[in-house]
């Protein structure tokens, strides 16, 4: 069923990772990504992997979820590694057949890339697994709030993101319903060439747009009735507080970063 798709895939929990201040978590994720790109050896990447696995263990997110997060990018991983393997022709030749040349360097680079991408995905999905989309939006709004001074509509952008998150499942369900209804009138969505198929989407898209506009209008009215008047003077129920945890995590991460840099300097 279409409606089983969840966006953001948040897993509620009470772990150390869950309890971290989302602003810090975003910053940590950025530092972690930087760390992966700074590391120039397998040892350095290994440090990154150890860090993310440790965080995963602490978060008590089922291990299977980690694999699940990798599934959508499996094709990208295979594609980049094949490219690396086939097009890097320097170094010791391991295998040669016709115009195919596989070198040791090609294999190493491919492996290096794969590990880096995998670590990157696991790290960022850990952020979305342990932080609810709304908290994440909230954190982004606050991290970006200095931009308000240069007239960036940070609050409006965050509000838009929240509403999008709220309405994606509703609209997915609606699309499902409209598709069934048009199929019941004999609409053929599955056969024909590209132009015919694009044409067949009209009976789905028009009602979907019409209903989205209607929903938007009703939502705007409901928001107005609930005293919404933009971001000025707004308070939040959930206050973001950074505590000792965040600093503990920061120091741990800084430690890992230091090790990676040392590895780089000494060429380990």
């Amino acid at each position: 069923m279409l409606k089983d798709i969840t966006i953001g895939q948040f897993f509620p929990g009470n772990s150390f990772v869950h309890k971290l201040d989302p602003r810090f978590k975003i910053v940590f994720t950025i530092i972690f990504i930087v760390m992966l790109f700074v590391a120039d050896s397998f040892a350095g990447l290994g440090i990154g992997i150890v860090f993310v696995l440790m965080a995963f263990l602490i978060s008590k997110i089922p291990f299977a979820m980690m694999l699940k997060s990798l599934k959508p990018i499996l094709s990208i991983i295979i594609f980049t590694s094949v490219l690396n393997i086939l097009f890097i022709r320097t170094g010791d030749v391991v295998f040669k057949w016709a115009f195919l040349t596989i070198t040791k360097q090609g294999l190493t680079t491919a492996a290096f890339m794969v590990i880096r991408i995998v670590a990157l995905i696991i790290g960022t999905s850990l952020l979305t697994y342990t932080t609810s989309p709304i908290v994440l939006t909230d954190a982004i709004e606050r991290l970006l709030s200095p931009l308000k001074k240069i007239k960036v509509p940070v609050h409006a952008l965050a509000m838009m993101m929240t509403i999008a998150l709220r309405f994606i499942p509703t609209l997915v369900e609606e699309t499902d319903k409209i598709m069934s209804a048009q199929k019941a009138r004999g609409a053929d969505l599955e056969s024909g060439n590209i132009i015919q198929r694009a044409k067949a989407l009209v009976p789905i898209l028009v009602p979907l747009f019409v209903s989205s506009f209607r929903r938007a209008e009703e939502l705007a009215l409901a928001m107005e009735c609930r005293c919404y008047h933009g971001g000025d003077g707004r308070t939040r129920m959930k206050q973001l507080k950074c505590g000792y945890r965040d600093f503990v995590a920061l120091f741990v991460l800084a430690g890992f970063m230091a090790v990676v840099i040392v590895f780089n300097v000494y060429g380990i």
Binding site: L165, E218, L219
Partner: peptide, 19 residues
């Protein structure tokens, strides 16, 4: 469906008060 703003029940109930 068209009057709930937030993705979590309690956040939605808090919406007006935050405003």
């Amino acid at each position: 469906d068209n009057q709930l703003v937030a993705t979590i029940v309690e956040e939605d109930v808090a919406f007006a008060l935050e405003n």
